[in-house]
């Protein structure tokens, strides 16, 4: 197993797509359908990376990122915003709220995993 990734995404298809791609590359994926569930998961378990949709029902991704960063337990876990938001300032807003990276939807299935791997700390990568 390469590592554990928390995926916070409300769209079932997108959730499936990302999980599929990540599983194929040896990552264990925990899925959360909204921000609150995501924060609960992150509190229970240690993840190597959080993939975070911004447009979530109820609590949006910016708030989720801020909450994760605010908790000392989860404060150092890398967060990558994966979003179809492409308005001006979205990237900046995501980074400002605590995300380490920003990937625009639609994702490119050929490059997606290698893009996110840049954010996983090397020592935490599992041995293949």
């Amino acid at each position: 197993m390469n590592g554990k990734i928390l995926l916070i995404e409300d769209n079932e298809q997108n959730r499936y797509l990302a999980t599929f791609l990540l599983n194929r590359r040896g990552y264990a994926v925990t899925e959360a359908v909204d921000g609150k569930a995501g924060i609960d998961c992150a509190a229970k378990e240690r993840f190597d990376l959080v993939l975070l949709d911004i447009q979530l029902p109820g609590m949006d991704g910016y708030a989720v990122a801020a909450a994760l960063r605010g908790n000392p337990e989860t404060g150092d876990v890398p967060i990558i915003a994966v979003t179809s938001y492409a308005m001006v300032g979205d990237r900046e807003k995501a980074l400002a709220s605590g995300c380490n990276g920003y990937i625009e939807k639609p994702i490119n299935p050929e490059t997606f995993v290698s893009e996110i791997e840049r954010f996983i700390a090397p020592q935490q990568k599992g041995t293949p």
């Binding site: 797509l17 599929f20 179809s84 299935p109």
Partner: peptide
């Protein structure tokens, strides 16, 4: 509109790619 349209495209492009890769 453009933003809303991107979400379904994510699935389309994503899965098309996956299938084309033979995954």
């Amino acid at each position: 509109m453009s933003h809303e349209l991107r979400t379904p495209l994510n699935s389309i492009i994503g899965f098309t790619g996956i299938i084309l890769q033979g995954l």
